[in-house]
């Protein structure tokens, strides 16, 4: 072995740094910090983390109805008898379900697309769970589809595309209102947001 082959970090440590570095938002420095934190961690805590990671990969599946991540199929939201089955909210990501559930204002069902149409980034119609929505609407129970994709170009394109497909099958297709965010500042609002906030103003 020549001196050029010498690495200051042991191979398992270097490997873990590399694995952390692959995660979104983790740079080389963060990867090193996390790795050395794990090295110093008690063995049982490290094992618990490793098991939690494996459990996510081995036990989590997609709900055959709403396509959300779940341990049991159908998921607890889809089987909950108190939920309103006539209204279906279409979302981009599983995290959006959590965001909507936190409002405690929505009692209907969900449908997770797992992304938004973004041909430039290689995501087309086929990559999303769009066909599954049409299958869910076939029995005629759902009366309203709420498009809750993100208010950006890709979210709008997705909403418009799905609206076109589902409108012959349901009574109403609605879109989440767009306007000023709580805690925002009027003077910084962009033209689109302000225009829509004005158009959607409500009786005080």
């Amino acid at each position: 072995m020549t001196t050029n082959d010498f690495h200051p970090t042991a191979a398992p440590v270097a490997r873990l740094i590399e694995e952390f570095h692959k995660l979104p938002g983790i740079g080389p420095k963060s990867a090193q910090r996390l790795t050395y934190h794990l090295v110093r961690m008690p063995a049982e805590e490290a094992r618990a983390l490793a098991e939690a990671i494996l459990a996510v990969k081995e036990r989590i599946i997609l709900c055959s109805q709403c396509q959300n991540l779940t341990e049991v199929d159908p998921c607890p939201i889809c089987t909950d008898p108190s939920r309103d089955r006539t209204i279906l909210c279409v979302l981009e990501e599983p995290l959006d379900v959590l965001a909507l559930e936190r409002t405690h204002c929505y009692q209907g069902l969900y449908h997770v697309l797992h992304g938004a149409i973004s041909p430039i980034n290689g995501i087309g119609v086929e990559e999303l769970k769009i066909r599954e929505i049409l299958e869910r609407l076939r029995d005629g129970v759902v009366q309203e589809v709420v498009m809750a994709t993100n208010p950006n170009l890709e979210g709008e394109a997705t909403a418009m595309y799905i609206q076109r497909l589902v409108s012959p099958l349901v009574k109403r297709v609605t879109r989440l209102a767009r306007g000023l965010p709580v805690g925002g500042d009027l003077e910084y609002a962009d033209l689109m947001t302000l225009t829509r906030a004005l158009q959607g103003r409500q009786e005080f």
């Binding site: 087309g124 119609v125 909403a159 418009m160 595309y161 076109r164 497909l165 012959p168 829509r196 959607g200």
Partner: peptide, 28 residues
């Protein structure tokens, strides 16, 4: 491919394209 999907969706929905079809109810 997305261009083609859109024209297929148009055929599927059997509707003619309209000027504003963002699926937004009036006033929102």
């Amino acid at each position: 491919a997305f261009l083609r999907s859109v024209s297929h969706a148009r055929a599927y929905a059997g509707s003619r394209p309209s000027e504003n079809e963002s699926g937004v109810p009036a006033g929102h």
